Simulated assay, not measured.
Amino acid sequence: MTGDRDESLEQRRKRLAAELAEVDADEAAEAKRDAQSEESRRGMALGLKISSEFIAAIAVGAMLGYLLDRFAGTGPWGLVILLLLGFAAGVLNVMRAVGVVATPPGLGSKQDKGPTR
């Protein structure tokens, strides 16, 4: 009778160990999927940020150029010039966001500034 009980306990232990291994494998796979989806969300957020900054720079340049033309009577030249400047500012913002161009020293964090007294 004791032998049957030991065999039964050993079978249960093996079954529980197999179930725990399966649960651990499922949790590891789920953690991997979560990490991949988090990386995907970061990429999507960066893409939306970059595109909105680019479009906003162009729109602001066009709006300021239109207003300049409207009030100063300069014809289409204010719109053309400020639209091109807005485009250049948008490209510069995209390059900064991607990391191709560093931020100017005056616009960075407090670490960029010299010692204060």
Rank of each mutant, 00 (worst) to 15 (best):
K49S: 10
A88L: 14
Y66P: 00
P104N: 11
A31G: 03
M63H: 08
G78Q: 01
I81S: 07
K32L: 10
G90E: 00
A45E: 06
L48W: 03
A88T: 04
V98N: 11
A28S: 07
G90F: 01
R70H: 07
L67P: 00
V98L: 12
A57R: 08
E22V: 10
K14T: 12
L84S: 11
V100Y: 04
F54N: 02
A17D: 12
I58R: 09
E22F: 10
A28P: 01
E53D: 08
V100E: 01
E22H: 12
V91P: 03
N93E: 08
G43L: 14
P76M: 06
A35F: 12
V100P: 03
R96E: 05
L68H: 06
A97G: 02
A45T: 13
G108L: 10
V23T: 06
L64F: 15
V23A: 13
T74W: 04
K14W: 04
K14Q: 11
L82E: 03
M95K: 14
K32N: 06
D24R: 15
S51Y: 09
A18M: 08
S40G: 10
A31I: 12
E38N: 13
D34A: 15
R41K: 11
L83R: 04
M44R: 14
L46K: 15
S52C: 04
A35Q: 14
E22Y: 10
L64W: 14
S40W: 06
E39M: 11
V101E: 02
R15S: 14
R70M: 01
M63A: 15
A88N: 05
M95L: 15
L16K: 13
T103E: 05
P104Y: 05
F71P: 03
L67M: 08
